[in-house]
Design a protein around this nucleic acid. Structure first.
Length: 420
DNA sequence: TCTGGGGTCCTAGGACCC
DNA sequence: TCTGGGGTCCTAGGACCC
């Protein structure tokens, strides 16, 4: 059996954990650059505010005092996530952190009569120790655990924990779930299924396997199997990521190559830092940029360029150097850039780096690696005290709109350094 | 005026091989 | 005019997730 632990309205709950005045109020948290609504409290959901709503469409509610708003504060959310996951790790032999606010626990080895009491205790403990409310769904497959979690979240009677452990419960739950709510059935496929009269998860589960395979491929077939109670979505060991992307929208359009270079340098430095943190190196650096697609009155340009590295690297000098080389190759004057980003991929463990036959810079690389590691000891994920001259001074979020940001309540080391 | 960011997997088709 | 069959690997794009 699996238990899916999912934090309720996670970003909003993180804000509430340190600002009790938000409790019981309609609250939304915005995406980077204060662009869209990405998290909502139950109260703001009840007001009809949809996920992804552009902020300017609900700003009047904020101005008139009917809605609370916060810019996203990932330092805070990341820290609280880490604390929640730590509690789960103590409770179950194996957990898979699926996203910042969700984890699957493998309940193997725990007697079934203990499942619900254990999970009820976890709900209580996580709330008490971190301030975050969570819901838990228990079922024989991950997809069914997702379904159970929906019910745990929706109906107070479950006290935060819902179990699907027999066929009657399974069919009842599926019959009450719209097909589009199933994990793995997305925006594109759901309308097609509905048009064919498949409206609930149970309708879908009752279609013949071959039909599902033919219409939706192996991924659809896996979802179908999981709804029957057959495990088809495996628990992967946490492997190294295959790509890392750092990108941001800007508060204002950037027209100047030098200004854009500073941003791209920062994005590349953040990517390189993440590589080093995971003890990996990338074989390719990709740079992209976008003009503002909503400004149909302005000329549009969205180049995308990859720069291969002779030898996979993770130091700031090489990653930034490659990114700037790409930027110079595609940058064009006369456009207002709204967003840019850097992707590093072809990632391998640093222990597997092989020198190139034509690499006569091995010694220099070694020095650059040492310099980057030294920088890591002084920098945080928010701010670079040590940086290359091509990067910007100040906070990484400078030039990105964050007008409603709360403090990093649980990780104030940053600010202490600054005060000293 | 204002519209996010970061991932994974699968598949089809092209390049290339024998 | 005629010009096979069967693989693998890579990549771009689509679909999905949070």
């Amino acid at each position: 059996m699996y238990a899916l632990v999912d934090c309720n309205n996670f970003f909003v709950s993180c804000e509430r954990a340190f600002q009790p005045s938000l409790e019981g109020r309609p609250v939304v948290v915005l995406s980077n650059n204060d662009g869209c609504v990405v998290a909502r409290s139950n109260e703001s959901k009840a007001m009809g505010i949809k996920m992804g709503t552009p902020f300017f469409q609900v700003r009047n509610l904020v101005d008139s005092g009917r809605l609370e708003v916060r810019s996203s504060n990932y330092t805070l959310y990341g820290d609280l996530s880490r604390r929640v996951m730590a509690i789960l790790r103590e409770a179950a032999p194996r957990i898979e952190v699926y996203s910042i606010d969700e984890a699957f626990m493998d309940l193997e080895g725990i007697p079934s009569e203990r499942h619900r009491p254990l999970c009820l205790e976890l709900v209580r403990k996580i709330r008490l120790w971190t301030g975050i409310p969570v819901s838990i769904g228990i079922a024989p497959t991950k997809t069914l655990a997702k379904v159970a979690n929906h019910f745990a979240k929706r109906y107070a009677g479950y006290r935060g924990v819902c179990t699907i452990d027999d066929d009657a419960k399974r069919e009842k739950a599926l019959s009450l779930s719209p097909v589009g709510d199933i994990w793995g059935i997305g925006r594109r496929v759901a309308p097609k299924l509905e048009a064919m009269g498949i409206r609930t998860a149970l309708d879908f589960a009752r279609m013949p396997r071959e039909w599902v395979r033919g219409k939706l491929g192996v991924t659809g077939e896996r979802t179908w199997l999981e709804l029957q109670g057959h495990i088809a979505v495996a628990t992967e060991e946490q492997e190294a990521r295959k790509s890392i992307c750092t990108s941001r929208s800007f508060a204002d359009l950037i027209t100047d190559m030098d200004e854009l270079s500073l941003r791209v340098s920062d994005f590349a430095a953040i990517c390189a830092r993440k590589l080093r943190k995971e003890h990996t190196a990338a074989g390719r650096v990709t740079v992209f940029m976008f003009t503002n697609r909503f400004r149909e009155d302005l000329p549009q340009y969205y180049p995308f360029i990859s720069v291969p590295l002779d030898v996979p690297a993770s130091n700031n000098q090489e990653i930034i150097g490659a990114a700037l080389k790409g930027l110079k190759a595609v940058f064009k004057e006369g456009y207002g850039y709204k967003k840019a980003g850097v992707i590093v991929d072809e990632i391998i463990p640093e222990t597997l780096i092989q020198g190139s036959l034509f690499d006569d810079n091995a010694e220099m690389r070694e020095r650059e690696n040492v310099v980057s590691e030294l920088m890591d000891r002084f920098n945080t994920s928010d701010r670079s005290l040590l940086r290359l001259a091509s990067q910007r001074p100040g906070h990484y979020a400078d030039g990105i709109r964050r007008e409603h940001c709360s403090k990093p309540f649980s990780t104030s080391w940053n600010d202490l350094i600054e005060v000293h």
